[in-house]
Design a protein around this nucleic acid. Structure first.
Length: 770
RNA sequence: GGCCAUUUAGCUCAGUUGGUUAGAGCGUUCGCUUCACAUGCGAAAGGUCAAAGGUUCGAAUCCUUUAAUGGCCACCA
C-alpha cells in the first residue's frame, strides 16, 4: 500500500467496477414488500431530479451524500434497495438559459416556430445532459441507472397527460380569466410561489382629482400612486367606509385628470386609510387587489397591458415606463400633481430571472385543489397532520401545514415551449375570428393576429399549424361564446382543431416524480416499491414540490408517495451569505473534489448539516475528513504490515477463545458494539452528523490512539491482531455509506473474505448487550 | 404586520426526552524526525451557554419577558 491515500483516478475506477457488477440493482425478494413491516420491506428513494442541462452544485452534492448514505446503509442491511436517478427538463429555467444563448447569436425565440424551438432546446439539453450524469457518478451515487428517468421521457409525458385527463373528467380542471403574474420578458405566467420580491425606489405621485360637486374650499381630492400610467383607463376611486375622514366621499363623483370623464368613488375595506391620502384609484387590470374589488363591485375592467408588455389604450404601443413618463408629463402640464414623494420605497415582484412582473388578466388552466369530496389538498394536509407522512426536522411541518391550509387553485399553464404541451384541443370551425395565432410562414415571416385574417389572406390551415408559435383563445364569461375544447392526446378527426400551445408548469410533471420513476400505474416496480421510503430535498421547495407530490400521490393511488420527508438545509457560502453569481461567492464542488476527494467532501457536508438548518459550507470539516481518510488508510497499512511480520497464521476473530482475550480486547469490542448501536439509532433518526462523528471519534481516538498503541506492546500479536482486524473491518463497514470509495479500496486491499465488495458485505449488528 | 428559527470557546458550529467536571473541527501555546500516518503523536490554554425573571433537588436544555440576527409569508395604491 502507498504511504498516502491517493484518491485521484481511484474513485472513477471503483465506481465503474460497482456499476459493471450491477451492485446498484435491487435484489427483489417477493416476501419483503411495501406495507409488509413484519418481514421487512424495500427501501426506495426517487432522486430529486437535477436540471438536465445544468451542472452539480453544493446542494446537489449534499442531497446525493445524504441519499447515498441512506441507500447504502439499507442495502448492506439486506433490504431490497432501489434508488432511481433522473433529470428534470426544468421548463422555464432551461428556456431562459437557451434564449440567452440565442440572444448572443442575435436571434430570439420569435424567429422559430414552436416545434423548431422545441427541437432546438431538446438538442441543447441533450448536448449538456452528459455533464450532470457523469457528476452523479463522480459523487459515488449508487443509483440504478437502468431505471433512469428524464421528465420528458415518453412514458412520463403519457402519465402526465393521463393524470390531466383524469382531472378533467373529475371536474378538477377549469379555464378561467384570472389575474396572473405575467413576465413580459419571459413571455409567460408564474405561480405566486415562484416569484421573489425586491425593493425599489419610485416616486409616489399625489394626483389631484377635481370634484364634480365642489364643497367650500375642497375643489380637489388627492390620490397617491406610484403607477400613474393607467389613470386614463381608470373608472373608479375607493375609500375605506370605516374611515371617518373620507366615508362621506362614497357615491360622490370626480373627474378623471386626464380624460375629464366622470369617476365614482366607492367604499371597500381593503383600502388602508393610513397610506397616502387614504383614497386609492382602481386599476383592476393591473393590480390584484383592484381586480378583486372590481369583481366584487362589478366594475368594468379596462385592459391596460398587452401580452408583449406594451401599453394599450391612451398610451398604446408604449412601454410601461415610457407611458409613466408621458402620463406624469401630461398631469404636470394640466397642473394635476399636488406633490411628489421621491423617497418612497416599495416592494416589487420579480420573476426568477429578475424581470419585473406585471399582473395581467389572462385565460389560464387551473386545477381545483379543494373541490368538495375530491379535494386534492385535504388528504395531503391530513397525512402530515396525523403523522402518516413524517417530516424531518419536525419544526418544518408548520410551513407545510400553513401552506396547505391556505393553498389556492393552481394555475398550471405556462406560455413556454420547453415542457409538456397541454393535451387540449380547441375547435377551430366557427371560431376563426376569436382565436389569435402567431406563426412563422413557409417564407419564414412571422405573423400575429386573428386566425381568420390569415386564412383570408390565403394561408392554409396546415401552414399556420406547421409554423405555429402560440395561440390565445379568449375565455368569455358568457357560456356558449367560447370555442369548444376537449382533452385528447391525439388530434381529433372531425373538423379542424388546434392544440393548446401552453405547456404544463414544471411542478405539474415533477409532482408525479415518485410515480413516474416507478413507471406508474402497472409496472412491477410500482407494485413492489411504492410507496417510496424517503423524499430527501431542500426545504425551499417544500411548497412548490413536496406538497404537489403528496397531492398527486393520494389523488392517483390513494396512498402516500413516501413515508418520510427529510429536508436538508441550504448550503451557504463561506462568508455565511447565500451563494450567488453576483456576489462571486459560489462554491464549485469540482474544486473540492479535486483537492480533497469525494469522500471528504461528502462526509464534510454531512457533518455540517446537523439538524436541517442552513449552514455555511464547512470547509474546515472537509479538510478534517481528508485527514481522516489518510488516517484510516494508514491504519490499514499498519495492520497489513503487522500481519506480514506475523510468524504464524492469524486466527479468525470468531474462533478466538474468550479466555485468551485481554481486558483491552474485550473493552474495544464492547465499545465497538456500542458504536454499531449508536450509528443505527442515529441514522434511524436522520441524525447523520452524529452517526458520522461517532465513527470518526471511535476510529481515531479509541481504535488508533489507544488500542493500536497497545497492540504494539503485545506478546500475543496474533490474537491482538485478530481483534484489531475485526474491529477495523467493522468500522470500515459502518463508514462505507459515508465514505464509499476509500472504504471499498481498503477493504479490497485487506482481502477480507466475507464478500467481494464492501458494498455487499453484511452490515454489522450489535450482539452484546451492555 | 404574521410565522419560523438562531444567539454556546478566537472562528464555524454540535449539545435529542432537564441529570455528574459543557463538546467537535479549525485556530492558539508547549513538547516530540516513537520504525502506520507531520494529512502525524503527546500535552495545554480558552466558555458567568445573549440578558433578566420563573419552574425544579437540579436548567445551555422547560416557561415568561426583553434584545440582536437570519429566513419565510402576507401587504404595500
Amino acid at each position: 500500500m502507498d504511504k498516502i491515500y491517493n484518491y485521484k483516478n481511484k474513485e472513477k475506477e471503483i465506481y465503474k467496477n460497482w456499476e459493471e457488477k450491477e451492485y446498484f440493482k435491487p435484489t427483489i425478494d417477493p416476501k419483503k414488500k411495501s406495507f409488509n413491516k413484519a418481514q421487512g420491506k424495500p427501501f426506495t428513494i426517487a432522486l430529486p431530479p437535477p436540471n438536465a442541462s445544468g451542472k452539480m452544485h453544493t446542494g446537489n452534492v449534499l442531497m446525493i451524500a445524504i441519499e447515498d448514505l441512506l441507500i447504502r446503509w439499507h442495502r448492506m442491511k439486506g433490504d431490497p434497495t432501489l434508488w432511481v436517478p433522473g433529470t428534470d427538463h426544468a421548463g422555464t429555467e432551461t428556456q431562459i438559459t437557451f434564449e440567452k444563448a440565442l440572444q448572443k447569436q442575435g436571434k430570439s425565440r420569435f424567429s422559430f416556430s414552436r416545434h423548431e424551438l422545441y427541437d432546438a432546446i431538446w438538442k441543447f439539453v441533450a448536448e449538456n445532459k452528459g455533464q450532470i450524469e457523469s457528476q452523479i457518478r463522480q459523487m459515488g451515487a449508487s443509483v440504478d441507472w437502468s431505471r433512469y428517468t428524464f421528465t420528458l421521457d415518453a412514458h412520463v409525458i403519457k402519465t402526465v397527460h393521463e393524470t390531466f385527463k383524469k382531472m378533467v373528467e373529475d371536474g378538477l380542471v377549469y379555464r378561467s380569466n384570472y389575474m396572473v403574474n405575467y413576465c413580459p420578458k419571459c413571455g409567460t405566467t408564474y405561480a405566486d410561489v415562484e416569484l421573489k420580491h425586491g425593493e425599489r425606489h419610485d416616486p409616489l405621485y399625489y394626483v389631484k382629482y377635481e370634484r364634480v360637486v365642489k364643497e367650500k374650499g375642497h375643489q380637489y381630492i388627492s390620490v397617491a400612486t406610484a403607477r400613474p400610467e393607467p389613470i386614463a383607463e381608470d373608472t373608479h376611486l375607493a375609500v375605506n367606509p370605516k374611515d371617518k375622514k373620507h366615508k362621506e366621499l362614497i357615491g360622490q363623483k370626480v373627474l378623471n385628470p386626464l380624460t375629464g370623464k366622470e369617476m365614482e368613488i366607492i367604499g371597500d375595506e381593503f383600502v388602508d386609510p393610513e397610506f397616502g391620502t387614504g383614497i386609492v384609484k382602481l386599476s383592476p387590470a393591473i393590480d390584484k387587489n383592484d381586480y378583486e374589488v372590481a369583481l366584487k363591485h362589478k366594475l368594468p375592467i379596462n385592459e391596460i397591458l398587452e401580452l408583449s408588455g406594451k401599453m394599450t389604450g391612451r398610451y398604446r404601443g408604449m412601454s410601461v415606463l415610457d407611458a409613466r413618463k408621458k402620463a406624469v408629463e401630461e398631469l404636470e402640464h394640466n397642473e394635476k400633481i399636488e406633490k411628489v414623494d421621491e423617497k418612497y420605497v416599495h416592494t416589487v415582484t420579480l420573476c426568477k430571472a429578475g424581470h419585473s412582473i406585471e399582473p395581467m388578466i389572462m385565460p389560464n388552466w387551473f386545477i381545483k385543489v379543494d373541490e368538495p369530496n375530491k379535494s386534492l389538498k385535504k388528504p395531503a394536509l391530513d397525512a402530515v397532520k396525523n403523522g402518516d407522512i413524517k417530516i424531518y426536522p419536525k419544526w418544518r411541518e408548520i410551513t407545510y401545514i400553513r401552506w396547505m391550509e391556505e393553498m389556492r387553485d393552481w394555475p398550471v399553464s405556462r406560455q413556454n415551449v420547453w415542457g409538456i404541451q397541454i393535451p387540449i384541443w380547441y375547435q377551430v370551425d366557427g371560431h376563426e375570428g376569436r382565436i389569435a395565432v402567431s406563426f412563422i410562414d413557409r417564407q419564414k415571416r412571422q405573423h400575429n393576429g386573428p386566425l381568420r385574417q390569415w386564412l383570408d389572406e390565403g394561408f392554409s390551415f396546415e401552414e399556420i399549424e406547421e409554423g405555429l408559435q402560440q395561440i390565445i383563445v379568449p375565455q368569455y364569461e358568457a357560456v356558449g361564446n367560447n370555442p369548444k375544447w376537449i382533452v385528447s392526446q391525439e388530434k381529433p378527426k372531425d373538423g379542424r382543431w388546434i392544440q393548446e400551445t401552453d405547456t404544463f408548469d414544471t411542478w405539474f410533471s415533477s409532482g408525479q416524480w415518485p410515480l413516474v420513476t416507478l413507471k406508474y400505474p402497472d409496472s412491477e416496480d410500482f407494485k413492489y416499491f411504492y410507496p417510496t421510503s424517503v423524499m430527501e430535498t431542500g426545504w425551499e421547495i417544500i411548497r412548490l414540490w413536496v406538497s404537489r407530490m403528496i397531492m398527486f400521490g393520494y389523488y392517483l393511488t390513494g396512498e402516500k408517495p413516501f413515508e418520510n420527508v427529510y429536508l436538508h438545509g441550504i448550503v451557504r457560502a463561506l462568508d455565511g451569505r447565500k451563494m450567488s453569481k453576483s456576489l462571486g461567492n459560489v462554491i464549485n464542488p469540482e474544486e473540492y473534489i479535486e483537492q480533497y476527494g469525494v469522500d471528504a467532501l461528502r462526509m464534510g457536508l454531512i457533518s455540517g448539516t446537523a439538524n436541517g438548518k442552513d449552514f455555511n459550507f464547512p470547509k474546515d470539516k472537509v479538510i478534517a475528513y481528508k485527514h481522516f481518510a489518510n488516517k484510516i488508510w494508514n491504519m490499514g497499512r499498519f495492520i497489513l504490515l503487522m500481519i506480514d511480520q506475523l510468524e504464524k497464521d492469524m486466527p479468525a476473530f470468531e474462533t478466538l477463545d474468550k479466555t485468551s482475550l485481554h481486558a483491552e480486547d474485550t473493552d474495544i469490542v464492547r465499545e465497538l458494539e456500542a458504536l454499531v448501536k449508536t450509528v443505527d439509532t442515529e441514522l434511524e433518526k436522520f441524525r447523520f452528523a452524529d452517526a458520522g462523528e461517532a465513527i470518526y471519534h471511535f476510529m481515531w481516538h479509541t481504535l488508533a490512539d489507544k488500542y493500536i498503541e497497545s497492540v504494539k506492546q503485545r506478546e500475543d500479536k496474533d490474537i491482538a491482531l485478530s481483534v484489531l482486524m475485526h474491529v477495523y473491518v467493522t468500522c470500515l463497514k459502518l463508514l462505507h455509506p459515508f465514505m464509499p470509495f476509500i472504504t471499498e479500496e481498503i477493504y479490497q486491499k485487506l482481502g477480507y473474505k466475507d464478500a467481494d465488495s464492501i458494498m455487499i458485505a453484511k452490515w454489522p449488528t450489535a450482539q452484546y448487550k451492555r
